[in-house]
Design a protein around this nucleic acid. Structure first.
Length: 464
RNA sequence: GGUCCCAUCGUCUAACGGUUAGGACAGGUGGUUUUCAAUCACCUAAUCGGGGUUCGAUUCCCCGUGGGACCGCCA
């Protein structure tokens, strides 16, 4: 097996969105599967929009979901000089040329084409400037001499063979008027320098590949393999953008999605292995491959994410789950008081059964976390006089209880059912309301066993 | 508009010419139950349309139709 290196190359112009995370995941998985390298490259050559905070956020995001990269992150802007050198070499060797067209001139041309209804391609005015005078008041851009005739074929590892006519690829700019390199150049030079063997990226880059390949060829560099993965669509069915509601990783973290659940969801979005739905990290590394990637775009499905998350919440080691809950609560809700930790840990085994996300566990443990509980008007109505007498009787027995365990509690409850000629619900419901503030709580023994004795007594006393 | 890509249940997908078209999520019905859940069992639901090729097409080819991406001195 030959050596493999992949990279994820986001631009730090906003929070990482879910499509980017999947691209990173696929690259990472591919390299791990091949026992190769995976790098992170921050493409920050757009000075205007790139921000340090976003760079940090991207790194945090990858850490959160468990994607680790080799070496330090690679900062593209640090390599601008090298990009410029390559541009000059292309210029020297006749693969590129200076173009003195002004932006206005280009704009005019585009409008003309639009009016005529014909597709715009730069007219190559300065490609062969024999009979044109070079203006000395205009700074030129450097354009790449793109192929004019014939066809190009891309052998894409996901899409198969893609064949396009070279005439639709214009002489694209590689160095701007201010001398800075554009994406098309920088990406190629960096990928070459980083010895990237497989470029796995979104389908929206496919046309770029035809430009970039020409740079590799002009420089006589070996061309990496390309794999263009289909985009993730929003519920509307179009490319996911930052404006879509649940589009960034942060959106999922803040409702309490577990990293493993999202990793598993993203893995299965556009990739499959037979009928298998749940993949451990190791399994996904072992099984991931490019032929398993589908060609059609897929839509985001929140209920599916939630369902997977529910699965991981239920199957995760409870100590681990508590750790996640603690971190989550501190970051997005309020810190779990250390005096309440014991109760929460005791309760997590049943709390997790009605949770699809960490947020649910947090919500459902409010009766433990808060010293005072609120009972809604509606629930309060259910605490009538007969309920109160049940609570009173329960309290008397409970206070005298030598040891709080399920057997002893069951004895009390059974006794009360007989005495008050009611059923389990008749006893359980008032206790649940008074103890948790809600009709819809955990099982009554679970509540009784998880709350501190004095808390139970004081809550019951309020309603006896 | 031009170029390219895509097309199986509502959604994610399996079936690499021969299956009663499978699984998962969602939805529905019922069992269990201590409320809400959870859980168990069962059910509904798809090959975009039209032509070929073939003994046989979800699968291969062509044409429609629909959806999407790209068309920046952004990446």
């Amino acid at each position: 097996m030959s050596f493999v290196a992949t990279r994820f190359a986001p631009s730090p112009t906003g929070p990482l969105h879910i499509g980017g995370v999947r691209t990173a995941l696929f690259n990472w998985l591919f390299s791990k599967n091949k026992k190769g390298k995976f790098y992170l490259r921050i493409e920050d050559t757009d000075k205007e929009r790139s921000k340090e905070e976003y760079k940090k956020q991207i790194i945090d995001s990858l850490n959160w979901i468990g994607i680790n990269y080799d070496d330090e992150e690679y900062i593209q802007s640090k390599n601008i000089k090298k990009h410029q050198e390559v541009a000059n070499e292309l210029l020297k060797n006749g693969f590129a040329y200076k173009c003195y067209c002004t932006e206005e001139e280009i704009k005019e041309q585009k409008e003309k084409c639009k009016k005529k209804g014909i597709p715009y391609v730069y007219n190559r005015k300065w490609r062969d400037p024999k009979n044109v005078e070079i203006p000395n008041n205009i700074k030129p851009v450097i354009r790449f001499k793109s192929k004019i005739s014939g066809n190009s074929i891309l052998k894409d590892l996901v899409q198969g063979e893609v064949n396009i006519s070279n005439s639709i690829i214009e002489d694209f700019i590689i160095l701007r008027q201010d001398g800075t390199p554009t994406y098309q150049l920088s990406a190629v030079v960096d990928d070459h320098l980083m010895k990237i063997t497989n470029v796995i990226r979104g389908d929206d880059h496919k046309i770029n590949t035809f430009k970039q390949k020409q740079i590799y060829e002009a420089m006589k560099w070996s061309v990496p393999e390309f794999a263009h993965i289909p985009l993730i669509h929003s519920e509307k069915g179009s490319k996911l953008s930052k404006r879509d509601k649940a589009s960034t990783l942060e959106d999922y973290i803040k409702i309490g999605i577990l990293p493993d659940a999202l990793r598993n969801y993203l893995l299965r979005l556009g990739w499959s292995h037979k009928d298998k739905e749940i993949f451990t990290l190791d399994e996904s590394i072992k099984l991931f491959d490019l032929p398993g990637v589908g060609k059609s775009p897929s839509k985001l499905d929140m209920s599916r994410i939630l369902s997977l998350n529910e699965y991981y919440i239920k199957h995760l080691d409870e100590k681990e789950l508590f750790k996640f809950l603690k971190i989550y609560s501190k970051k997005f809700k309020s810190d779990i008081d250390s005096s309440k930790e014991k109760s929460i840990i005791k309760s997590i085994s049943f709390l997790k059964n009605k949770a699809k996300k960490l947020e649910d566990i947090y919500q459902n443990s409010q009766y433990i976390l808060n010293d005072k509980i609120k009972i809604s008007e509606e629930d309060l109505k259910l605490i009538d006089n007969s309920s109160k007498s049940i609570i009173k009787d329960f309290l008397i027995k409970f206070e005298k209880m030598p040891e709080i365990n399920k057997d002893n509690l069951e004895k009390i409850v059974k006794g009360l059912i007989d005495k008050h000629k009611t059923n389990f619900k008749g006893v359980g419901q008032p206790l649940r309301i008074v103890l948790t503030g809600s009709r819809f709580g955990p099982g009554i023994y679970n509540i009784l066993l998880s709350l501190e004795k004095d808390v139970i007594i004081s809550r019951l006393k309020d309603y006896k």
